[in-house]
Amino acid sequence: MTGGRGETITTTGHAVTWRRPPLIRDRRWRWGLMAGTAVYLALAIASIEVDWSRVVDGLARGAAFVAAFAQPDFVSRWEDIVAGILESLTMTVVSTFIGILLSIPVGLGAARNVSAWPVYMFCRGMIAVSRTFQEVIIAILFVAMFGFGPLAGVVTLAFATIGFMAKLLAEDIESIDWRQVEAVRATGAGWWQLMNHAVQPQVTPRLLGLSLYRLDINFRESAVIGIVGAGGIGATLNTAIDRYEYGSAAAILLVIIAIVMVTEYASSHARRFLQ
């Protein structure tokens, strides 16, 4: 961080030019990084295999699909759409509730400052597994276990919620103001009282905000896991696309977008209210 003059100023004759100091000061690193990026991009792009004749065929379908958005067909599959959306919504509500309920003990267990070592390791492991695997992969496993239907979806989303919420909750608990905890402990409070009076007030507002946020995410995910048989609007959508019913597919997508917009708007208002 020295402001030496020699590096960025060059004088040729009377003209002075100045160059912005480079982001990476070491010349070898800078060029190495640029060359590495260029090589990677070249290799990566070269490894994309595209069947251009297939793409040309598909463009007509693409155009038909875009056109379908202008004239979505809500009518012919109306009952399937309503049933699918309702199933998605119920899955969202139940899974969010169960997930949050379970994420509280897991989050407490995964916070190093309030938890014992073996419990900590177990909870952290669970969070890692839940966060690493995309919901759809988890859904495949639960469908194999519980059979097709919304229950597998609920369990999947609840499991994903645990990973999401418990991690953030644990981080929150780890960064709470320890003086408040000590002050409550000084009154002779037990562990549960400590959690209730010193920890809970510090983490509750964010916990509520995150719950609403997770509700949004769970709805969006519930629209996908149906593709592998875990219930919700995804199955309907998948069928519509497979059967080339673009009008119905566009209708379903528009309904999803509308619901996401409404929940997002509502939850941002609710979060402001809670703060």
Binding site: S47, I48, E49, V50, D51, R54, V55, D57, G58, L59, R61, G62, F65, V136, R220, E221, A223, V224, I227, G234, L237, N238, I241, A249, L253, I256, I257, V260, M261
Partner: peptide, 20 residues
Amino acid sequence: SINSLIWALLLVLILGPGTL
């Protein structure tokens, strides 16, 4: 609002299967 898997579903229909 639309998950990448749904986007993929649509795009496979249009572009054919593959990384693109």
